[in-house]
């Protein structure tokens, strides 16, 4: 059988990837990814230094930096960041868990699908910001209403991906497992759950992005702290440097949380796909 063994070694899955292309090394990719932001930073600096754009429209990079330092020293920046991050994490966690549970229920059970499917579809059709007045009426302008809005934002991407992924699990695999006596929970944990892991992670990443979106929406509408509030407040006071600061911070926080999730995703996909 050595001929077969040799065969296995030249199969694509086993082939040794050439690793010298810049796109395939971690450093190469990191450098390339940093290129566009760096170019933008240089352009930004040039635009303000040479007066291409008025500083009332575009603050200088230094002024944004000093706005950051100033707010940091006053201690408010850390507070804004902390409260926003906290809202996103709590809302995302609750929304994602609900999305997983309800998505699994509706995806696995025909009864639950018939019962809940149309209702959830109708709720999803409501543009999520339409909930804001109702949330404020019911939950007042406190943490609850903001976190609830984020929960709604995080729920649907997770629910939809889990539901659809469970519906599309390879019927042949399920049948094979049934033929070997698997049913109920064992079937679920052996076939269905592993099969949907990659889809679940893309749902989670969408949900995380939605959570930041809904955070800013909630904070713009009614808040006294947080990055959305900083945006609103800076606009009202004409502090364009702080406005830029808030946007850059949102970009950074969004990217960092997404990267963490992406890291978990790669681990999971390596294990399950």
């Amino acid at each position: 059988m050595s001929s077969l063994t040799d065969l296995a070694n030249i199969l694509p899955g086993n082939a040794v990837q050439p690793r010298n292309h810049p796109l395939e090394t971690r450093w190469g990719r990191g450098l390339l990814g940093a290129l566009v932001p760096l170019v933008l930073l240089v352009l930004w600096q040039a635009a303000t230094a040479f007066g291409w754009v008025s500083t009332s429209q575009l603050p200088t990079p230094e002024s944004v930096f000093s706005a950051a330092v100033q707010l940091l020293e006053g201690g408010t920046l850390a507070q804004h960041i902390a409260i926003s991050t906290q809202r996103v994490l709590i809302g995302f966690a609750i929304g994602a868990i609900l999305g997983l549970v309800v998505g699994a229920l509706v995806g696995l059970s025909e009864l639950a699908d018939a019962l809940l499917g149309p209702f959830i579809g109708a709720i999803r059709a409501v543009p999520s910001l339409a909930w804001v007045p109702l949330l404020i009426l019911w939950l007042k302008i406190g943490e609850d209403s903001k976190v609830t809005l984020i929960v709604i934002g995080a729920f649907f991407p997770v629910f939809t991906t889990v539901y659809l992924a469970l519906r599309h699990v390879d019927k042949n695999l399920i049948e094979a497992a049934r033929a070997f006596g698997l049913k109920g929970t064992r079937l679920l944990t052996t076939i269905q759950l592993p099969a949907v892991v990659p889809a679940v992670f893309s749902g989670l990443r969408l949900a995380l992005a939605q959570s930041w979106l809904f955070l800013v929406a909630a904070e713009l509408i009614a808040s006294s702290m947080g990055l959305g509030f900083l945006l609103m407040d800076s606009q009202n006071n004409g502090r364009i440097d702080r406005l830029f600061l808030a946007i850059i911070l949102l970009a950074l926080l969004g990217k960092i949380t997404d990267a963490l999730l992406g890291f978990a995703e790669r681990k999971a996909i390596k294990r399950w796909a």
Partner: peptide, 18 residues
Amino acid sequence: GVDPRCAVAFQEPRLLPW
């Protein structure tokens, strides 16, 4: 119903990819 006295090798291998 699925009979434990049988075992099947399907026309396609149907292995769990993970």
